[in-house]
Amino acid sequence: MSAQGPALGERQRAAIEERGPGPVGVTLSVNGEERSLEIEPRVSLLDALREHLELTGAKKGCDQGTCGACTVRVDDRRVLACLTLAMTCEGREVTTVEGLAEHGELHAMQRAFIAEDAFQCGYCTPGQIMSAVALLEEGHAGDDAEIKEWMSGNLCRCAAYPHIRAAIRSVRDGQRR
């Protein structure tokens, strides 16, 4: 059912501007700042942040979408930076844990994670915090059962889960605002 039309295809591909496979100029808006970088199209958002922009807050735990350590916000949603190609984020707003504090003032969730000891090694923590902030915005922190389920995309091998829930509860309940 697909009529082959290489000529048309070539034309169309040209029309939509094929870039790569070598390094190409890309502009990303990260934490409110326009950042230019030269990357191959195969570079993930996670590697663009970590290896090209020196933003190492988003962590690489698996590079396979199975741990959540790379959770960042793209536009208004928490996503996994390891399964996102950086170029797909052109024209979108990327927020990482480095962009959470404002003027040096920690976000309430960051303060709550410290106060509740919601981490040990700290490696999954940026992802947990980005996820937890989104969780509250999504309205899925109603009770502990809901927090548990909607935070299950972020693995913590130190198993700080009970304290992560406590931190989320405390922000939800406004104790630390």
Binding site: R50, E54, L55, T56, G57, A58, K59, K60, T96, V97, E98, L100, A101, L106, Q110, F113, I114, A115, D117, F119, G122, Y123, T125, P126, I129
Partner: peptide
């Protein structure tokens, strides 16, 4: 006492071994 390295860990400022520029 809260962890002395807490702030670095919650802000992403903590540099792990693959993150040395």
């Amino acid at each position: 006492l809260d962890r002395v390295d807490g702030r670095q860990k919650v802000t992403g400022a903590a540099r792990y071994s693959a993150e040395i520029p």
